[in-house]
Amino acid sequence: MPVLAAIAVLAVLILVHELGHFIAARSQGIYANRFSLGFGPIIWKYQGSQTEYAVRAFPLGGFVGFPDDDPDSDIPPNDPNLLRNRPILDRAIVISAGVIANLIFAYLVLVLQLGIVGIPEKINYQPGVLVQPVNEQSLAYQAGIRERDIILAVGGKELPASENSSTLLRKEIQNHPNQPIELTVQHENQQRTLKLTPEKGTDGKGLIGIQLGANGTPIYRRPRNPLEIFSIAAKRFQQLVVGTLSGFGQLITNFQQTAGQVSGPVNIVKVGAKLAANDSANLLSFAAIISINLAIINILPLPALDGGQLAFLLIEGVRGKPLPSRIQEGVMQTGLVLLLGLGLFLIVKETTQLEWVQKLFQ
């Protein structure tokens, strides 16, 4: 059930994104003849008065199709309601509407979560720091640290029940590049001592490849009024957007160290399923985070993404005329093939790393 819930969340986010494009087009009177979830062969479809709605075999996204380049369309090429015949601003609204829809949806999900779960008032801290290896190639994982292990001490110094414990652990790791450190780790109900040597990062600081989290349980209270919910949701939304942008920035500026953290659909579902198994309300946080990530990824100026199409519009605005159709189509088709190829590669890679799959080959 948690896995199905996580998959359902991803499906909803794709639906929200494509609905943004679709509604932006139809509200301006622009023709949209296809609305599809997924790519590839059609599994199910329904023909409406103007639009074909379909679910396709490969759930790696979706698309809204326009009759502009459909050879079977009976709409005259000079019809003003074809997307390509609209002013640049109208087209920009349609192209960017998916990103805007995901951002609005993320904010509303945070509002819903605060309204249902409550406002976090404080955290009941326990000794140590909750950790998770960034991937199976990290030093931490190779040394035996697993997800949801608790590091109780570093270098013989106990990590207290405090919000500062994560900072203390991070500093100790960063201050010992290429120097061995000793960690006291609690795995489930057992404690053990591990010794490992942090790698020296590009900034000269030590790295072992773990994510740090507070070892504590949040205590919630009921909202005082609706305005408080919207205000706190806005602050949390801003934090998530800034954090996501920072993560993408690190991926670009420090690709070698962060590329291993890039996840595909299988790992995303895996994370969502674990969150749902711990607390079903966590699915709301999961939905907000993934929706923001989906929005930011799509606005990147890369072929086959919304940002790539907006880049073409910018070039058109500067030149006073669009790039030749063959150039745009070639770039977009190449980008789509690369994007689908990357998605399939990540699916295969992450599927083979699942425990139950590995057992089949033992």
Rank of each mutant, 00 (worst) to 15 (best):
V3F: 13
V16A: 07
E18S: 03
G20P: 04
S27A: 13
S27T: 14
F35T: 08
G38L: 08
F39M: 05
I43W: 13
K45L: 02
Y46A: 13
Q47E: 14
Q50G: 15
E52L: 11
E52N: 03
A57Q: 06
G61A: 07
G61D: 00
G61Y: 00
F63A: 05
V64E: 05
D69F: 05
I75C: 08
P76Q: 00
I100A: 14
F105R: 08
F105H: 02
L108K: 12
V111L: 07
L114S: 00
G115M: 08
G115R: 06
I119E: 00
K122R: 15
I123D: 13
N124H: 05
Q126S: 03
P127E: 04
V131A: 11
V131R: 15
Q132G: 00
N135S: 14
S138M: 07
A140W: 04
A140R: 10
A143M: 06
I145L: 03
G155T: 11
G156D: 04
E158Q: 15
L168A: 08
L169T: 11
R170N: 12
K171N: 11
P177F: 00
P177D: 09
L183S: 12
T184I: 09
H187P: 09
Q190A: 12
Q191S: 07
R192D: 12
L196R: 09
T197E: 07
T197A: 03
P198S: 09
K200C: 04
G201R: 02
T202K: 13
T202D: 15
I208L: 06
G209H: 07
G209D: 05
I210Y: 11
I210P: 11
I210K: 13
G213I: 03
A214L: 08
N215M: 10
T217Q: 15
I219K: 13
Y220F: 13
R221I: 14
P223D: 01
I229M: 14
F230K: 02
S231M: 06
I232S: 06
A233Y: 12
A234G: 10
A234T: 14
F237G: 13
Q239P: 04
Q239G: 12
Q239W: 03
V241P: 14
G243I: 00
T244I: 01
S246D: 14
G247Q: 01
N254I: 00
F255R: 04
Q256T: 10
Q257P: 05
Q257V: 06
G260W: 03
V262R: 02
V269M: 01
V271Y: 01
L275N: 10
A277K: 10
A281S: 11
S285H: 14
S285N: 15
I292G: 04
L294V: 08
L294N: 02
I296F: 01
N298M: 08
I299Y: 04
P301T: 00
L302K: 09
L305M: 09
Q309F: 01
L313E: 07
I315C: 03
K321M: 11
L323P: 09
P324V: 04
I327Y: 15
Q328S: 13
Q328V: 14
Q328Y: 12
G330C: 06
M332V: 14
L338F: 12
F345I: 01
L346R: 10
L346W: 05
I347Y: 02
K349I: 01
T352P: 00
T352R: 09
L354A: 07
W356H: 13
V357N: 14
